[in-house]
Computed example of a mutant assay.
Amino acid sequence: MSRLNGKRREAQEEGLKVKVAILGAGGIAHQMARTLSMMTKDDRYRDLVTPYAVASRSKERAQAFADTYGFPVSYGSYEELMEDPQVDLVYIATPHNFHASQACSCLRAGKNVLVEKSFTVNADQARQVIAVARRSNLLCAEAIWPRYMPSRTMLEKVIDSGRLGRIRTGSATLCGDNHRMARMSDPDLAGGALLDMGVYTLNFLDMAFGPKSPSRITTDGTFDENGLDEQSSTALFYEDGTMGLSTCSMVSNCDARASIWGSDGYLVCDGVNNIKTMSIYGKNHELVETLTIPEQLTGYEYEVASAANAILDGRCECPEMRHEDTIRIMELMDSIRGKWSMRYPFES
């Protein structure tokens, strides 16, 4: 087990910080590295976490990464990272298909994990990883950043206030012309738009409507020559009469907006996965109020801080993204892919 799990008092008394290591050195890893570097200079986080190590399958690449961001340690293999007793938290920043096995390996090596979305490829894998975490009494959390941001609390406050009336409908869209990225177009890497982009739109609707599963799903999409989903639209219908619309695409660009519609007005969010503003409209489409999201470092700091605090408190999950939340979203994406009869080669 990590040296700091459940030891907040000792950490405070001895000035110890949660040492974060990054597994993988791709694009999202650079985002996290920048975030960790900025956190060390911020009064809110400087005494909580510290960037410690990076691991890549290339020693040269890992060293260059560490030099760029000031990480004191680098490894040319993932196994070396897992063997280092100084590592408290591993941020897993590899393609989806590796998440389950790497998370389990880290947990079995006594490391807490923060796993980039989507958490795994399917719900069975998610259950297996979470089971290992619970047996190990270690933190295991999904790094789906909108769940941890202040914008989530703001969204919930608007909905709970009753200003929009009875909420019956929601819509979320996220697109990007990134199908040429190797991992997005490779079935063996669990590519496609759903696990990479649709996961955000589905999480938005889940946050807005509350933690519940739809009773009926209608969905379809277009698929590339490898059988991967290029774009899709999914309608979710719930027992209480609520309906959610989720659209994602890796072949088109869009405004990435999300909306919640109620009997007395509606809310429009600018940016479904990184909300910038929230605009509240009345029944006659008049703008009532615009809410601005607090200034942030990169947006990733909230998930890191939540994971670090959970480690110090000896918790196995983060309250913003509980294990049951992760499993529910994975089950939902499994159901959607099932409607398409889309499976990845390694799932056969």
Rank of each mutant, 00 (worst) to 15 (best):
R3L: 12
K7L: 15
A11S: 12
A11H: 06
L16Q: 07
V18F: 03
K19S: 13
V20L: 00
A25I: 01
I28G: 02
H30E: 15
Q31M: 15
L36C: 15
S37C: 11
Y45L: 01
T50D: 01
T50I: 10
Y52K: 08
A53C: 08
R57L: 14
R57W: 12
R57T: 14
E60C: 01
G70N: 03
G70P: 01
F71D: 13
V73D: 02
Y75D: 06
E80R: 09
E83V: 01
P85V: 02
D88E: 07
V90I: 14
Y91N: 02
Y91L: 08
Y91D: 03
N112Q: 00
N112G: 11
E116L: 03
E116I: 02
S118R: 09
F119I: 03
T120W: 13
N122H: 01
Q125D: 14
Q125N: 05
A126Q: 05
I130G: 02
R134Q: 15
A141I: 00
A143F: 15
M149H: 07
P150V: 08
V158S: 08
I159E: 01
D160L: 07
G162A: 06
R163K: 09
L164P: 05
L164C: 03
L164Q: 02
I167Q: 06
T169S: 15
T169Y: 14
G170K: 02
L174I: 14
D177S: 14
D177L: 09
H179Y: 13
A182I: 10
A182L: 05
A182G: 03
R183Q: 11
D186Q: 13
L189Y: 02
L189C: 08
G191E: 04
G191T: 12
A193W: 02
L194G: 05
L195P: 04
L205H: 08
M207Q: 10
A208I: 04
A208D: 00
S213W: 00
P214F: 12
S215V: 15
T218R: 15
T222A: 04
N226W: 10
G227T: 14
L228Y: 09
M243Q: 06
L245P: 15
S246F: 04
S249P: 12
I260F: 15
I260E: 14
G262P: 11
G262C: 07
G265H: 03
Y266S: 11
C269S: 11
D270I: 03
N274P: 00
G282T: 09
G282C: 09
K283A: 13
H285R: 14
L287W: 00
L287P: 00
P294W: 05
T298Y: 08
Y302Q: 04
N309H: 12
I311R: 12
D313Q: 08
C318L: 03
E320D: 10
E324L: 00
E331Q: 13
E331M: 04
L332S: 03
I336P: 10
R337N: 13
G338K: 02
K339W: 10
S348H: 14
